[in-house]
Structures are given as structure tokens and as C-alpha cells.
Design a protein around this nucleic acid. Structure first.
Lengths: 135, 135
DNA sequence: ACAATTACTACCATTTTAGTAGGAAATGAG
DNA sequence: CTCATTTCCTACTAAAATGGTAGTAATTGT
């Protein structure tokens, strides 16, 4: 039931960009130093966030990343789901379009798990990046 | 953010005992067959539940396990936490008696994570074993 | 005595996590 | 135009966690 470093680091990157960015491009080198996260690992995480459209990037000297939107427009849940892949507590909750678990007919717990998935997502979706910065 | 097989299997064992037990001792062999879970793996999980006092056991022929209480007295959250170890989304939330994360002074997210921990535990604690059986 | 069952402990293959590593492509500065 | 700096892309890897297997001792009813 743990959030991996990818999820935690992703939030820290977003918080860092929101706090120190001010609309300018920030190099990963700087974020890496401030947040004490290996730059090569950061690259991978930021790449995912970038492809998802949450960041703007620029190469070359003076390059870096910046937020694509303002902090209150980022939903923490969206960011976490993007880098973590999925947050469903059990696999069957993630099943789609008609696929069902082989045990589904005798399963007593599916509604319990779906409910857990719901409260988790509802909670993390109730936070924006701005909320985190203001802590 | 996944619940491991230990947690899922533990719930299925408890549900099985509640459904087929009727106060009698049920051998793991039977539960293993009904639930299609390897008996040797079940032994480990059930051992944890037994040591926690949730089950009564008897050795020898006609031996097995039975619930130590009635289904409505079991809290699903308690069972899950017992077999899964901890359910905290990030390590620092589990810290106790004064131990703090080295980043705690610059951390914006601790309250967010604590809140997540709370909604998860509150939800799973709102279910009893009886609730699951009645699904 | 013996078959059936729990109790205990060690081991192990696979998957996931948390990185490392190397180089290509782009970009601004000089 | 060249060079330092930075993102972009892909492959690799050590360590930990997961999901079991395996063997054997102890207990109990028949």
C-alpha cells in the first residue's frame, strides 16, 4: 500500500518548479541538487510528466522545465496516477470493458475494494499543487 | 498502492471460515481447495492470524481453524494491517515517538500523506467481516 | 501405531523498485 | 561555427519485495 519514490519525487519536482520557477525554465541539475534526487532518475520521472503535458521543456543551455499551467490547475491525483501507473488496491478493480476476474462470481470483496479505490482517488483528487505549496 | 496476496488471501480465509465454519474446525486443506490457494502459503498467512488471536486452532486429525469471534466483531482494517504489516502510503507517516524524516523541515507533503493514510484506514475500518459475507 | 493436521523455519524464483550509464539531439553563447 | 549545456531516449543492473516451495517436528483422534 506504498506510494513509490516515483510518485513522491514527482510531487517534489512539481512543488520545486512551482516554488522556484516563476515562469522560467529550471534545469534538472538545480532541482536535483535542491531536492537531493539523482538527476538521471529525475530525467525519467520528468519525462513522464512532460509527455503527459504537465510541463514545458527547452533543450540547450539555459534550458530546463517549467510548469505548463498554474499550480491550482494541477490535480495531485492526476500527477500521482500518471507516474505510478495505477493506484488500484487490487488488480480486478482496474479491469475494463467486460474483462472479469475468474473468481468474480464467488467474490465477496469486489465492492469493498472498489470502495477503497474510490476513497483513495477522491482524496488525492481533492488536492491541487497549490494546496501543497501552501502547507 | 497495491494490497498484496497476503491481504487478499487473509480476507478470503476469514470469509471462508465464516461461511463454512459454523463453529467447527476447518482444515486448511479444505480452505486451500475451495479458495484455490497453495496450502503451504496459506499456513503462513493463517499462522499470522492465529498468533494475532483472531483464530482458534486444533492439531491432529479433525483439527483445523475456526473464528475466535463472530463475524461482526472482526474489523477488516485490523485483519489487513495484521498481515500486510503496515498500510501507510509513505514511510514517514509511520514514524513514531519523535523520529522524524531528515527532510521534515522542508516537506510540504506530510499532511497530505497523513490525510491519505487516514482516509484509507478509516474506510477499511468501517467494514466488518460480516459486511463482506453479506455482499 | 498411524494418519492427519497444525507449527516452525529455511529456502528460492520472479517481479518490482530504485536507480546507473551512455550517447544522441537541440540550443544559446562566444 | 564550435562548444558547453541541457533535454531526450534506451538499455542495463543491484537490491528488495513478493509469492510462493519444501522439509520436518509436534500434536491429536482413531
Amino acid at each position: 500500500m506504498r506510494i513509490s519514490t516515483k510518485g513522491r519525487y514527482a510531487l517534489r519536482v512539481m512543488i520545486d518548479l512551482a516554488s522556484f520557477g516563476n515562469g522560467n525554465f529550471i534545469a534538472l541539475k538545480d532541482i536535483s541538487q535542491r531536492q537531493n534526487i539523482p538527476i538521471k532518475y529525475l530525467e525519467q520521472i520528468v519525462s513522464t510528466l512532460n509527455k503527459a503535458g504537465y510541463l514545458n521543456s527547452m533543450r540547450g543551455s539555459n534550458g530546463g522545465y517549467r510548469l505548463a499551467m498554474s499550480p491550482e490547475e494541477y490535480n495531485v491525483g492526476t500527477v500521482l496516477r500518471t507516474v505510478e501507473g495505477t493506484l488500484t488496491p487490487v488488480e480486478c478493480v482496474a479491469y475494463e470493458n467486460g474483462v472479469t476476474c475468474p473468481r468474480s462470481d464467488s467474490c465477496n470483496s469486489i465492492n469493498f475494494w472498489k470502495g477503497l479505490d474510490e476513497v483513495v482517488n477522491k482524496y488525492i483528487d481533492s488536492y491541487t499543487l497549490k494546496d501543497l505549496i501552501q502547507q
